[in-house]
Amino acid sequence: MNPDASTIAAGAPIEVDLSPVAEGQDIKVFWRGKPIYISHRTKKQIDEARAVNVASLPDPQSDEARVKSGHEQWLVVIGICTHLGCIPIAHEGNYDGFFCPCHGSQYDSSGRIRQGPAPANLPVPPYQFVSDTKIQIG
C-alpha cells in the first residue's frame, strides 16, 4: 500500500526560476502534490523574523537555520499547516507570515508557528540554489 513506482518517479526534483518574483511577493508551486510557498521577503520581514527570542517559540528554530545563507530574502516552506494539513494563506495573520483558516494557526515571516493549535513550524523542503535566481526543490 506504499506509493507505487510512478508516484515516486513523479516526485522527482523540480527547478523553479525566481527572477519574476519581486520583493514582497510570493509564489506557490506544487511538488509531490504539496504546495510550496516561495516568498521574496522584505527587509522588514527578515528583521522581524530575526528579532524574535528563539527560546520563546513553541518550536524553537532560528531564522538563519530556515533559509540558505546568502539568500536570506528567500523563504521556501511547504505550505501545509502542521496541525491537520490545511493550506495557510500567505500575508495574513498577526505575524506578517501565514494564517491557517481551518483552526486558526498563525505562522511568522519565517514560517514558524507562533499561535494556534499547530505543533510545529512549516517544514522547509529539501532545496538548493542552482544559481542566484534558480532553485531546485527535492
Binding site: 500500500m1 506504499n2 506509493p3 507505487d4 508516484t7 516526485g11 509531490r32 502534490g33 501545509i80
Partner: peptide, 17 residues
C-alpha cells in the same frame, strides 16, 4: 499517513483505496 494516502498527499491513489 503515507500508507493511507499511497502517495505524498491525498490524491488519486487515496481515492482508489
Amino acid at each position: 499517513v503515507t500508507l493511507l494516502w499511497g502517495g505524498y498527499s491525498v490524491g488519486n491513489p487515496t481515492l482508489n483505496r
